[in-house]
Design a protein around this nucleic acid. Sequence first.
RNA 1: GCGAGUAUAGCUCAGUUGGCAGAGCGUCAGAUUGUGGCUCUGAAUGUCACGGGUUCGAGCCCCGUUACUCGCCCCA
Length: 413
Amino acid sequence: MISKPKGTLDFLPADAFKRLHIEDKLRRIASLFNYKEIRTPAFEKTELFRRGIGEETDIVSKEMYSFNDNEFTLKPEMTAPVIRAYIENSLYNVSPVQKLYYISNMFRHERPQAGRYREFSQFGAEVIGSGDYAADVDLISLGTSFLSDFGLKNLKIKINNIGNLDERRTYIADLKKYLEDYKNHLSSESHKRLFTNPLRILDSKDGKDIEIVKNAPVIFDYLGPDNKSHFGNVLKGLESMGIQYEIDYKLVRGLDYYTSTTFEIASDDLGAQNAVLGGGRYDMLVQQLGGKATPAIGFACGLERLTLVLEANKYEFPEPGNPKIYLVSAGEEAKKKVIVIANELRMKGIFCETDLLNRSIKAQMKDANRLNAGYVCVIGDDELRSGAVKIKNMAGGDETEIALDNIVNFNFI
RNA sequence: GCGAGUAUAGCUCAGUUGGCAGAGCGUCAGAUUGUGGCUCUGAAUGUCACGGGUUCGAGCCCCGUUACUCGCCCCA
């Protein structure tokens, strides 16, 4: 037997139906906020991700599915492709602010685990062209409102501002200086990070690291007046909308392109991978990818994780529809007639099903019952001869007699 | 890349000290000849993950392999 690749998922009809419902909801809310959908290729030139996400990030250094001699890579995230499309199609000429969203699958070669897959789907949104705090608030409120539209509470919104490049550079230098003194007390992982990515030591889960980090310099103190007031305005904006947040000066994110605002929404209902949604501002990325200096902000939400949270919260997904009528046939002539009537019903938009296995009447009735059909109509030699059929209401069991050729006009409730 | 756990029917899982491979659900058929749901009766479905070893005898004990799951790292 050939099995699916590790870390991928089959969406059987019941799962696919749930996913479709989630997508419908996301699209509806995104359009309320005037975000327009964008679709980009499943793969891009590898160079795009190297330059966009950062050579040193885990994603680029060890998680990409690359092929054709490394020329192309299945997209591991959507921000770089969206920005590429923005620049390539000169969207800044269409309007100064672009509000875009996407629902798409991503590929990262990681060790699979609860809530983490090698092929996974994200709903994401980007506001390109505005550095105003209003853009941050607009985007974050999109994220929180669809989560609350799903009835999810108990979600923690964490927010931070990691400054611009200069501010961060100064901060990292001071952070390193501080941590040097505790070098020998840090966990081995963090010891390594001291050289590779000191910021990440801030959200280490190691108990000792946490103690050490408690008295470390705080990024907020390194922000200039612009970022300080931007941060303040974003927070006030969220407050004014009743969005509860938690400032987390230790919230640093793993992609190189983030600047200024960063945020994350996590759920206690998930396992180790508890971030449902994460994002931030990336004011340097457009320029980095060859466009004009353009501020932007975005987030991505993992749909598999969202689904896990919904299921943990006993979210009630809608039920798929059931056939309005099941046409039961008895005999070869009736079967031919049933095929024709079924087609007429469907052309009229009536959900209709028939037997495809030449089954007995009893078996067809069972099938109709299993499918939860609203009505059943048995057609056999008698009905063909008389031209009259009985339409049986499966809920009550009562039957209505009607002309065979008039089934399509029956008033199905 | 590292660590831990699991592997028995389509699904969820029992399986005693090593002694004929099991249950529930689902599927199929029957219980009035052309009428479902409930009930009853019956049936089909297994390389007990794979390969070795111990033993008169292994689903069970030992070794190895693989797959899956969870965690570390990182991310959604």
